[in-house]
């Protein structure tokens, strides 16, 4: 994952941090297309629990995923205060429902600590490391691993 932005040094990355419940997560900013408010979604039949439905994003049908539920936490009860992070995952665009966007971080690879050994398969599947920033712990997640290529079968 190498990219260069003018004021970024080699090895720096920009991440976007967001809150779900009392935990903080972050994803690579390059995969984020836009951030928008919650609008009611049209429910999809036979979809997994974390799939909230689809919304109209300027003419495109955008699936909305409750990231909390996807990460195995308590499913969100979406309100107008919730935020949808529109992100590009491989060739698809998905909306991730989170509580709030908290920060944009510029970090170097060295500041990313390896994920501690934990038993949960789920966390190990998506966590790519953790960051300690201002006494906060932010978990770096990889969107690609959240939505495996075989999503259609999983759904």
């Amino acid at each position: 994952m190498s990219y260069t932005v003018k004021n970024l040094n080699e090895g720096d990355r920009e991440l976007i941090a967001f809150r779900i419940g009392d935990q903080e997560f972050c994803v690579n900013i390059m995969s984020v297309r836009e951030i928008r408010g919650w609008t009611p979604a049209t429910a999809m039949p036979h979809s997994p629990g974390y799939m909230l439905g689809v919304i109209n994003l300027r003419g495109a049908v955008l699936p909305i995923i409750d990231l909390a539920a996807r990460l195995g936490m308590k499913p969100a009860d979406p309100t107008a205060r919730h935020v949808i992070i529109v992100a590009q995952v491989r060739r698809k665009v998905v909306g991730l429902l989170v509580d709030a966007v908290s920060d944009i971080l510029t970090v170097t690879d060295e500041t990313i600590q390896p994920t501690p050994e934990i038993s949960s398969e789920l966390e190990r599947q998506f966590a790519r490391g953790i960051l300690a920033i201002e006494k906060r712990m932010i978990c770096l997640i990889e969107l690609e691993s959240l939505f495996p290529e075989t999503e259609s079968e999983a759904a």
Partner: peptide
């Protein structure tokens, strides 16, 4: 008609 498959996946019955 808007594709569901473009960003999501085929849904049986839809």
């Amino acid at each position: 008609i808007k594709s569901l498959e473009a960003n999501y996946t085929h849904v049986p019955g839809i």
